[in-house]
């Protein structure tokens, strides 16, 4: 089974303009095919870190490598933005094909079927609900067929039923394709349900204040265990 890439993050300094540094000496190793949740308060730099890993923000000192390659030269990652960010003039299927040029029309429909939107291929974004748009955004990220998935608050502002549905889809993809996943969340619950490693980031410049490995085996992830981890994370000093 194919595996996702390993990441080596060594950011010496990242700042915006002449302000205080956002990161100063942030060093992280992300194992291949691991699912890592970055949690922490707003403005701590989680989304910026995702953009740096995606290779679109290179204004920092240090290096980020994906399987040994500079981030900007590594294969295109699958990316989910905080907002669905669908191109309003393209149908759901064409939005997928826009990001994944190699994707055929049939493959775009298959990608939509994976997020249970097989009948929405010809609909424009304004014809989809907020939750459906998010699922199209997830389908788009998956259609890129990347070993690396970067998700920025993928479940924010969705109702609980939809979040459970998105969690199930997410787990299904991760189990089937074993990508390396980094996802940003400010919800501890998302993190402990989906990730096998949780990084709690805080302060400015940002640093990892807790690095917690969660059990991978489903049998070891029952509600009692997850509740214990939730409790542990909530007690972290910030």
């Amino acid at each position: 089974m194919a595996t996702g890439p390993g990441l080596n993050i060594a950011v010496d300094e990242k700042r915006f303009g002449s302000g205080a540094p956002l990161f100063a000496g942030l060093h992280l190793q992300i194992a291949p095919s691991s699912v890592v949740a970055l949690i922490g308060p707003s403005g701590v730099g989680k989304s910026t870190l995702l953009r740096m890993i995606a290779g679109i923000d290179a204004h920092f000192t240090g290096s980020i490598t994906v399987d040994g390659m500079a981030a900007a030269a590594a294969p295109v990652p699958g990316f989910v933005f905080q907002d669905p960010r669908l191109l309003p003039w393209l149908t759901a299927a064409d939005n997928i094909r826009a990001a994944a040029p190699a994707c055929t029309e049939a493959q775009a429909v298959t990608a939509l079927e994976r997020v249970e939107l097989g009948d929405a291929e010809m609909l424009y974004p304004h014809q989809l609900s907020g939750g459906m748009q998010r699922r199209v955004a997830l389908a788009r990220a998956l259609a890129v067929n990347a070993g690396l998935l970067l998700l920025d608050e993928p479940f924010v502002s969705l109702d609980r039923d939809l979040v459970s549905e998105m969690h199930r889809l997410f787990r299904h993809v991760v189990d089937a394709e074993r990508p390396t996943v980094l996802f940003v969340s400010h919800l501890i619950d998302d993190a402990i349900r989906l990730a096998d490693r949780v990084l709690l980031i805080d302060h400015r410049p940002a640093r990892v204040v807790a690095d917690i490995a969660l059990p991978k085996a489903p049998a070891e992830r029952d509600e009692t265990v997850l509740a214990a981890y939730r409790h542990m994370l909530e007690r972290q000093p910030s």
Binding site: R51, I56, V76, F81, D83, R85, A98, P101
Partner: peptide, 15 residues
């Protein structure tokens, strides 16, 4: 933000 989308998915200039 659509420019950022284009950069994230590394769309060619023509696309």
């Amino acid at each position: 933000e659509f420019d950022e989308l284009g950069r994230v998915f590394r769309l060619s200039r023509l696309r």
